[in-house]
């Protein structure tokens, strides 16, 4: 199914430090947008705008977990009133996570660049900014490690490739105890529901932002030890798989 790129329908409120582009976010483009002040918006005379504060200011900041739980719970309740079923609800949560993924991707790259350049600033070696992942595995490692650490303070618990020869485009990221589900209890008739669909949306945003067309869904896979264990199923589109083969032949890492 060839859906139009979702960036086109993205919201105009920029809650991600980066003014939203209508196209795929590219670093150069966002920098251009950052340097020019929108002419129509009023700014405080003391210049307390997002352009005047450092993007790393909130890097290690923490907030109450209860506040997150209250907000997320209210977000799910609100979404629930406007949908017809579980799938619809999960789709909506996914869509709300998606723009976060696009922005977090830029944030991750921005931060990994600034730390490596400051670490090397004393030496004369020129530090090249980290490249965006070109191959699937690099991308998945970025999600499994740095993205998870940024959001949840730890890496995800597992990263697996589908063993079935029919679905080589499927990968699984496992979180034994997703933080977002800690305070969610689904009613019995909605036991299939997994509100980590929100996180699936974030993953989808990151992949799409990197140029990997993907569908991501969250599934309950409880074990005795981990009752809320969740598997994020990442399914890459056919064009991505074809490109992957070409890149592999060309020896691109």
């Amino acid at each position: 199914m060839a859906a139009p790129p979702r960036h086109a329908t993205m919201q105009s409120i920029s809650n991600g430090g980066i003014a939203p582009g209508t196209d795929r976010p590219q670093t150069q483009q966002t920098q251009a947008q950052l340097s020019q002040q929108s002419p129509g918006l009023r700014v405080p005379s003391n210049r307390k705008t997002i352009y005047d504060r450092h993007l790393n200011r909130s890097r290690n900041a923490e907030l109450s977990r209860a506040s997150f739980a209250f907000l997320f719970g209210e977000m799910v309740t609100y979404a629930q009133r406007r949908v017809t079923g579980i799938q619809d609800l999960e789709k909506r949560l996914n869509e709300q996570g998606y723009p976060l993924g696009l922005r977090l991707l830029d944030l991750l790259f921005y931060r990994s660049t600034s730390t490596s350049s400051s670490a090397l600033s004393s030496s004369s070696t020129s530090s090249s900014p980290p490249n965006r992942p070109l191959r699937i595995i690099t991308l998945l490692h970025l999600i499994h490690g740095p993205l998870w650490r940024l959001l949840f303070g730890r890496a995800a618990d597992a990263l697996e490739h589908s063993v079935s020869p029919d679905t080589p485009n499927e990968y699984m990221i496992t979180d034994n105890d997703p933080m977002v589900n800690t305070y969610i209890s689904a009613p019995r008739d909605m036991s299939m529901l997994n509100c980590a669909a929100y996180v699936a949306g974030i993953i989808e945003g990151v992949c799409d932002g990197c140029g990997f067309e993907t569908k991501v869904s969250a599934h309950n896979q409880p074990t005795e030890l981990w009752p809320s264990r969740t598997v994020f199923l990442v399914r890459f589109g056919d064009p991505v798989m074809e490109r992957e083969k070409v890149l592999e032949r060309a020896g691109v890492k």
């Binding site: 809650n15 977000m75 944030l107 949840f152 303070g153």
Partner: peptide
Amino acid sequence: DKVNAELVTLTYGTI
């Protein structure tokens, strides 16, 4: 108990 502040901020933004 704490969580990453940016997760809270971004979640509110998406709401």
